[in-house]
């Protein structure tokens, strides 16, 4: 549990950080909250020669409204998300989910950008970003580009980030007023990754589901957008048959690993149950 040697850098601007990462090459890793990287370093499973700490870059923090979108700086912590009235009003599912991430101590340090950029299938926020169709701002030696969260995740710890690129911000369209939402997470204890989790964002009209997106956490090597499952409930009253159809469609795309949380069969089963429960709870919140 003792990391190997490394050099520490603390740039003051995004451009300095990008230059450092370009100069230092493969041996450098950007450091956000550190809750994924530092444990890996302590186990010597990650042995970067250089850490580029992003905490000195003031511009990477903050939450602001830009028209009908919310823009969140990558270094905004989970605790800051929870303290934001704007998030509470516009994107309440982020509050619900942030409260299910680890524990208060971790949330003071852990960042939204780190959570979504790391590509760890156990992280909770990526599924929300899929459900909300968020866009990630990536900055690198070749300039700035925007990538949809739905295009970002390629495999466990593999993302659309190019070498030297940093995820600097997240932009999310504010869902319509009266939307329903829920994040259902089954976990063994506080601080654990999901055994299975489902995010739902929907709107209701005339007692029927008008629109719906569903995304899944830790049920595959990437977060999953469960499009068929969502389509199975649109236009229904979320009756028993519709819920079961959604669960079945969601289970069809799950491929969880068997681990100490349970065998794959169990995780797939409860994954479907999380979908059903999230749909019901989201609908109960919609107006």
């Amino acid at each position: 549990m003792i990391p190997g040697p490394f050099d520490y850098h603390r740039p003051a601007s995004v451009s300095d950080a990008i230059k450092l990462l370009a100069d230092l090459g493969d041996e450098a890793r950007p450091l956000a909250g550190g809750h994924s990287l530092l444990p890996m370093m302590k186990l010597r499973l990650a042995t970067p020669a250089h850490l580029v700490d992003l905490h000195g870059i003031a511009g990477l923090k903050g939450i602001c409204r830009d028209g009908d979108r919310i823009v969140i700086g990558a270094m905004t912590t989970q605790a800051e998300l929870l303290a934001s009235a704007e998030i509470g009003t516009s994107l309440p599912i982020l509050h619900e989910t942030a409260l299910l991430i680890a524990d208060p101590q971790v949330r003071y340090r852990g960042t939204l950008g780190g959570n979504v950029a790391n590509g760890d299938p156990g992280n909770d926020m990526p599924a929300l970003m899929l459900a909300l169709d968020a866009a990630y701002r990536l900055e690198g030696p070749n300039g700035v580009r925007e990538v949809a969260a739905r295009e970002f995740y390629q495999g466990a710890y593999f993302t659309a980030l190019e070498p030297g690129e940093i995820l600097t911000g997240i932009s999310i369209a504010v869902p319509p007023a009266g939307h329903g939402y829920a994040y259902e997470k089954l976990k063994r204890k506080v601080g654990d990754y999901a055994t299975a989790a489902a995010a739902v964002v929907l709107t209701m009209a005339g007692g029927k589901v008008a629109s719906c997106t569903i995304a899944l956490t830790n049920l595959h090597e990437t977060p999953l957008l469960a499009t068929d499952a969502a389509n199975a409930v649109i236009g229904t009253t979320l009756d028993d048959a519709a819920l079961k159809a959604a669960a079945t469609a969601a289970r069809a795309i799950m491929q969880p690993a068997s681990d100490a949380r349970g065998p794959a069969e169990y995780r797939t089963h409860v994954g479907g149950i999380m979908v059903m429960r999230a749909l019901q709870r989201a609908a109960s919140r919609a107006s």
């Binding site: 524990d103 063994r188 204890k189 506080v190 601080g191 654990d192 681990d259 100490a260």
Partner: peptide, 28 residues
């Protein structure tokens, strides 16, 4: 309700940290 030292068939410990070795918090 969950705390165990478990080995796989090759004799690897699969519950070697507090992530998987159940140590309840005040919440549980």
């Amino acid at each position: 309700m969950g705390q165990e030292i478990r080995y796989d068939a090759e004799g690897n410990v699969v519950t070697g940290s507090f992530m998987d070795f159940f140590m309840p918090t005040a919440v549980e």
